[in-house]
Amino acid sequence: MSVQELEKIFQDRIDSEIRIEPRDWMPDAYRKTLIRQISQHAHSEIVGMLPEANWITRAPSLRRKATLIAKVQDEAGHGLYLYSAAETLNISREEMIAQLHSGKAKYSSIFNYPTLTWADMGAIGWLVDGAAIMNQVPLCRASYGPYARAMVRICKEESFHQRQGFEILLTLSRGSADQRRMCQDAINRWWWPSVMMFGPNDESSPHSAQSMAWKIKRFSNDELRQRFVDICAEQVKLLGMTLPDPELSWNEEKQHYDFGAIDWDEFWNVVNGNGPCNKERLAARVQAHEDGAWVREAALAYAGKKRQEKDAA
């Protein structure tokens, strides 16, 4: 069969919502785009553990500490599900990790911001996990089977992340004047980076049309962003706090919130490695990997020895 015929069969299957599985024929560009998208997502889950891990030892109560550990552990699992999904596309785990460590592969820029106070754990759960969920739920219907299945698992686990975050903020919002100030300050710092998590405006994301046709992207960046703003603008009222956007206002005609302009210079600056924590985050990942090398080798040596003993017996 010619490539054109194969491509037609492939696209027909996608159009009729039939999932593509690892051993099925797929265009090279589909494979490459998916590897980039899934591994980037996996890296984000893994790097995303760092800003929160920063507060595990200083959580204000045992309940909060247990919750935060459970959340961070979930994120490690999310990374694993996604790396596994990417591996079915014929890239090795080592190759992906090497790409992350060399800076060739990106991860979500949101994790290049520092976590300055305990309230940041609340803001991250509410806004960052909230934005992630908004992005991820439609991907449960992504055309690539292993990816969609990983997303289903992830989405099931994510909802507690957002709820525990909102609960932290709610508690602070009902506390002392200092606690309320801390709550508002965290929202102020995390709002815009969270809004940026949806990526460039539609007119500046050139690959979107192809990704939509392949159904590895289900809604445009701006659609998802608008949905996120609409929901958060209401939720923030329950906290008695505000979102740091003077232009935020309900538009009766559109039945959506209008919101202010995004600082894309900041966005690209952080993407290109110049955010407040880019170097720190990557250095922490590389060091953890290198420090763990002896464990990986020892486990292999132990497994080899056990096998020999068994064979000899």
Partner: peptide, 23 residues
């Protein structure tokens, strides 16, 4: 349920417990 890397079967089962049966 999914896949994972492990040095041997015992570790694979322990890791599977940790990632696939946390709830």
């Amino acid at each position: 349920a999914g896949s994972l890397h492990a040095a041997d079967a015992k570790m694979a089962i322990e890791n599977a417990r940790d990632v696939y049966t946390r709830r």
